[in-house]
Simulated scan of single mutants.
Amino acid sequence: MNAASLLHLLQFASPALPIGGYSYSQGLEAAIEAGSVHDAASAHAWIERCLDEVQARWDGPLLWRLMQAYAARDMAAVADWSACYLASRDTAELRAETVQMGYSLTRLLADLGVADAGPLGDDVPLPAAYACAVCALGIPHEEALLAQLFAWAENQVLVCVKSVPLGQVAGQRLLLALRPELERAAATARGLPDEALSNWAPGLSMLSMRHEVQHGRLYRS
């Protein structure tokens, strides 16, 4: 990867990007409330399982396909995979999360003069907006996929640091320990055929539904 692509990737995969990623936990706050995640070991187990069952088998593969579709300028495929991703958000919070962040990133790309996400309407999911940025900026797809998985894991770790709570060093130790799982998830996401895609995670869906009525929440999902 050349320096320009790397710098673009660092910017658009950063949690500091002003699209609101820090305000969502994707059901993790409900898992902490329920006691399923309560220390560093259970946090590692939670993130590893979500990486394997959700990120590697659905979110990652759809992002991979969206990047390929944008690169081929196949807007019909972009629209189809975006619709699939939106349909897979099986709670109100998870759908609102990807639409809000996708809208914010789309607006940011337009304001910066980087790209137009295309004719997807108002409900642009985050993976589609991110894939648009990746292709417009010439970022290699493999690195972009791994960076997005890392950004997801980093946000999950930060939720644990704040809410379990874990110490800052424990959080960094956890993030470092997740490297093999992140590499494995990226490899799975790149190679999974269409017929093997799956977002079957009923436990996560139930926790997300509980979070919608949870009192004293810090996060929006």
Rank of each mutant, 00 (worst) to 15 (best):
A69W: 01
A147F: 02
C84D: 15
L207E: 01
S14M: 10
R173H: 13
Q214H: 10
S82T: 04
D122C: 09
L10K: 12
Y70E: 03
L112P: 03
V124S: 02
P125C: 06
V37P: 00
G203D: 14
T98N: 05
L9H: 05
Y219G: 03
C84Y: 11
S221L: 11
M75Q: 11
R49T: 14
R217G: 05
G171F: 05
C84E: 14
N155P: 08
E33P: 01
L10C: 11
A79S: 14
L197D: 03
S42G: 05
Y70L: 08
A13D: 00
P193C: 02
V37H: 00
Q11W: 11
D116V: 09
L126M: 12
A136E: 02
A76S: 13
S198G: 12
A72H: 07
A56R: 00
I47V: 14
V161D: 03
L182T: 08
S23E: 13
S23N: 13
H141V: 03
A131Y: 00
L28Y: 00
E181V: 09
G191N: 14
L66S: 02
D90N: 13
T91V: 09
V78T: 03
R179E: 13
L166F: 04
L218N: 09
V161H: 07
A170R: 15
A196E: 14
A131V: 06
V159Y: 00
L120S: 04
P202H: 10
M206I: 11
D74C: 08
S163M: 12
A69M: 08
G113F: 01
Y103W: 13
I32W: 01
D116L: 08
R73M: 12
A128W: 02
R57D: 07
L149V: 10
L109S: 08
L126E: 03
E48R: 15
S221G: 15
T188R: 11
A34Q: 07
S82D: 06
A131N: 06
A131L: 05
T91Q: 05
S198F: 09
C84N: 10
Q168I: 15
D74W: 09
D39C: 08
K162C: 08
L62N: 05
L10R: 14
A31K: 00
W64Y: 14
R184A: 15
S88V: 04
L66G: 04
S25T: 07
D59W: 08
H215G: 11
L175E: 06
A56P: 01
A147E: 03
T188K: 11
G121L: 12
G171C: 09
I19G: 02
P61M: 07
D194K: 13
L182P: 04
L63V: 06
A151G: 11
G118A: 07
A76Q: 14
T91I: 07
L112H: 11
L105R: 10
A110E: 13
S5C: 05
W58C: 02
A189L: 06
Q26G: 01
A147L: 05
G102Y: 06
G35K: 04
